[in-house]
């Protein structure tokens, strides 16, 4: 127990790495999800086909396998490419490999979330906006997206919770996140049980805090409708 207090600052640093990794992955996933949803909704057939392949691949492969592929295979790929253009190879860090792998995976899930939310916006609203002369991006930015947020939030919160837990596997490629550091420290202090128990509690805290935040956001996004219920 005393060892845990001694190592607390180290674990706090690990928790910060875990949270940063999760937030950056979520940002990438959001961007990919928005792109994917746009491609699925847009009339183009090629875009829809590409998105189908993307989501099918991601749903079939476990997160750790994709991470290892990106970390070890991506390294080789980047170096080969760099060799062709006559540049020196770059090192892919475990952190960025993790952001790319996890962002890529959850982007596929967010594609579905965003598409589903888009479908709930009544068509009449889009027609009305078009009748008012709105086109393209400005139409979506002012009419569909603000409403879509409300429907997408529960699914988005869900993806975030799963994503946070998924970041634990990045410790396998040597990232000094919460799990990686606790593993090392627990072995050194000969109290692995206490250290992993502490890790579980930190994850529960992250879950709990994010539930609170998302509940507040959901309430805020539905504020225009509060009286309708």
């Amino acid at each position: 127990m005393e060892a845990l207090i001694l190592y607390a600052p180290l674990l706090a640093r690990g928790a910060l790495v875990t949270i940063t990794l999760a937030v950056l992955s979520l940002a990438l996933a959001t961007a990919l999800g928005a792109l994917g949803a746009a491609a699925r909704i847009a009339p183009g057939r090629i875009g829809r086909f590409a998105v189908t392949i993307y989501t099918t691949i991601v749903r079939g492969i476990p997160d750790l396998v994709l991470l290892l592929l990106i970390y070890f295979g991506g390294q080789r790929f980047v170096n080969t490419m760099a060799g062709w253009v006559g540049l020196d190879g770059v090192n892919v860090s475990p952190f960025w490999a993790g952001v790319i792998a996890i962002g890529f995976i959850y982007g596929a899930y967010l594609t579905e979330t965003f598409r589903g939310a888009f479908m709930t916006v009544p068509r009449g609203q889009i027609e009305a906006a078009e009748a008012l002369g709105l086109r393209g991006l400005s139409l979506h930015w002012t009419v569909t997206i603000p409403q879509l947020v409300r429907f997408a939030l529960p699914g988005y919160a869900n993806v975030w919770q799963v994503l946070v837990k998924s970041t634990a596997v990045v410790s396998v490629i040597g990232l000094e996140d919460l799990v990686g550091l606790a593993n090392d420290a627990g072995k050194t202090a000969r109290e692995p049980f206490i250290f992993f128990l502490a890790v579980l509690l930190v994850y529960l805290c992250i879950t709990w805090v994010s539930t609170t935040i998302f509940e507040a956001l959901e309430k805020r996004s539905a504020r225009g409708l509060a009286h309708a219920r």
Binding site: S166, V172, V179, K187, E191, P192, F193, L197, L200, L204
Partner: peptide
């Protein structure tokens, strides 16, 4: 349910495999 759904499977596995040997 809350404990096992709210935490990563990897850590649960570590807790059992590495952790229990502490005692």
């Amino acid at each position: 349910v809350y404990l096992f759904r709210g935490t990563p499977l990897l850590v649960q596995l570590f807790l059992i495999y590495y952790g229990l040997s502490q005692f």
